[in-house]
Design a protein around this nucleic acid. Structure first.
Lengths: 341, 341
DNA sequence: CCCTTTAGTCAAAGCGCTTTGGAATGCGCA
DNA sequence: TGCGCATTCCAAAGCGCTTTGACTAAAGGG
């Protein structure tokens, strides 16, 4: 069923039917009701491409997700982010188009999305320090929002970020307050902006306590369970092992815990673990009391908020760009306790 | 830059430019080269909507992901599935559109996708037993493929599934061969087809060994870490606890392991765990020797294969529908050992 | 009672592409 | 020279919608 058929069926012009359906005031309420009813009856919805061609926009938001070249891995927070963003898109009648891309094809993918006029806006994931995508997206002139920030970038752009620096500073200070001195940092990849900020927060708190971080107790890498496991294992097996771990993701923290368990070390008693927690739906940090002491911030909520920011920006392109900084909540769980030494 | 401008610039008609770019033979190679060069120079790519309108198809594949009404959870395998499927789509010039939907709006979402002509085909996720989406999709007449199968459904449809029944039967038999008699099943939601098959496999192997499964040792639920933890904890705390666990997902298995660790029970020595493993990139089952004894099948590979099946079906609508059954590989890890009793 | 508004409707143009059905050119051959 | 046949190119139609500008009938004002 298309417009032509439907309007013919109703004995009205395409104009009138289109206007009736799109809520324009030039149509009498009686006619509108008749049209709406017929449309529902025949399951008519405007052809998305024809409408897009006529209006000049796609009502589509693009998500370009880079898989790491090494592990072909997609960020595990992605699903939850989508769930949050998807709800917002659905509520506003937008579709979400997802493009998987290796890092070397990133720029081309963005350009292509623009050239094809495939999307009205973009969400940029996982910004790196001084991320080259930022000037690129500016150049393309597509509305976009960033999940996170990019240090050193000297362009203005809309973003929503968690205060990673403060979160890690506070968590480190908390561990220090428990008497820990040898604290290990199991960080994300330090090409990523968030990881850089987290390390900075960690370093600041250590310095404030007059401690200098041991390079042997700091690692950077893709946040998988086995990465957490292998690095924690190596650190614990050192002659002078850490008494506490600061971890960048609950997925890594599971690996850290496994390394401790294997060695008969009890988390929270023998060795402490504090971790960042994105509140992933399938890895909830305990139902009643938190399993891990954690800096929490829901990535699902971030997805929903960013989607809203982007839609706002698309609908009011001249409004100033929004910047949102969320504070992570430090919750004390069973994985931390006083230092043993 | 659009076709009109580009053709004007080249002093050619739109027809010729379009044909040159699309590889039609009616264009001289000299002209084609000139056109291709100019297109690249001016970063011209056909407007996706105009092309779609003219050709009648969208070069878009739809993924409708249902979030559970309770937990608002999106299946954790989703990201990896996408990574696999996305690579195939990209290779064939297809886009992927993802729609998040609550279960009650499922049917409407599919109908809407069809009515708007938004996609050329669909991937159906997480089929339930006798899934109502199957007749619906048949009715809509959109090409689609199913990740999994739907028992009792009496329509023909294209699917790719893992032999869940056999995997669980074999794993159960393996546990029995180790001397286990009280084996617990931590299953996925048994509204899901795959979970039903897994239970059947489990039951078959038990029956073949002359054992009858204890209803108190069988649970069904959304496969989260805390689901695995709480159910395993409850079972282990019973007067007559299981000596082995058969788990439906490595994420749950992590929860099961946590329950054991809390109680000072060593996995593989005091209590055994065998789990299904989707080979999630961020939860690899050990780098050298497997952490868990596991039935493995890569969901990323499944995504890639299903995407290919769907594209084949779109391009050859009259070919017979493909059915693919993969066998999971049983790998023996550190989490299983002889029964203690 | 006539003229102006206003409400309601419509025909047609246009969005940017593909594709149909010619038309023009150049070549070989009689 | 003239004809047929490829080869190469083009004008125009059409995809299904929105939107502009115009038109008609009814209502209101003097």
């Amino acid at each position: 069923m298309n417009l032509k058929e439907l309007s013919h069926l109703l004995g009205l012009s395409q104009t009138t039917v289109s206007r009736a359906l799109n809520g324009y005031p030039e149509v009498s309420e009686a006619t509108r009701a008749r049209v709406v009813k017929a449309a529902a009856q025949h399951n008519y919805t405007p052809n998305i491409r024809a409408r897009g061609l006529a209006t000049g926009h796609s009502r589509c938001i693009g998500h370009v997700i880079s898989v790491s070249d090494s592990a072909e891995m997609v960020n595990p927070i992605f699903g939850d982010f989508m769930a949050g963003a998807g709800a917002t898109y659905a509520a506003h009648g937008y579709d979400m188009i997802v493009t998987r891309v290796g890092q070397k094809d990133e720029a081309e993918t963005y350009r292509n999305l623009k050239a094809r006029a495939a999307v009205d806006g973009l969400v940029m994931h996982a910004p790196r320090a001084n991320d080259p995508r930022l000037p690129l997206l500016k150049e393309l002139g597509l509305p976009f929002v960033v999940h996170g920030r990019s240090t050193e970038a000297n362009v203005d752009y809309a973003w929503l970020d968690v205060n990673n620096r403060r979160a890690f500073q506070d968590a480190t200070a908390y561990l220090i307050s428990l008497g820990h001195r040898r604290i290990a940092l199991i960080n994300g990849q330090e090409t990523m902006d968030f990881a850089i900020r987290r390390r900075a927060g960690f370093a600041t708190a250590m310095a404030e306590a007059g401690l200098s971080p041991d390079p042997a107790l700091m690692s950077s890498g893709e946040m998988t369970e086995s990465y957490g496991h292998s690095n924690a294992a190596a650190m614990v097996d050192q002659p002078d092992p850490p008494t506490a771990f600061l971890v960048s993701s609950i997925i890594c923290a599971v690996g850290v815990r496994r390394a401790l368990d294997e060695r008969g070390l009890r988390p929270g008693q023998d060795v402490s673990i504090a971790t960042f927690d994105d509140c992933l739906s399938y890895l909830a940090n305990g139902s009643d009391t938190p399993v891990f002491t954690a800096m929490q911030s829901s990535v699902r909520d971030a997805g929903a908020a960013l989607a809203q920011m982007l839609i706002d920006q698309i609908q009011a392109p001249d409004a100033p760009l929004q910047h949102t900084l969320w504070e992570a909540e430090l919750v004390i769980g069973a994985s931390t306790g006083p230092a043993k030494d």
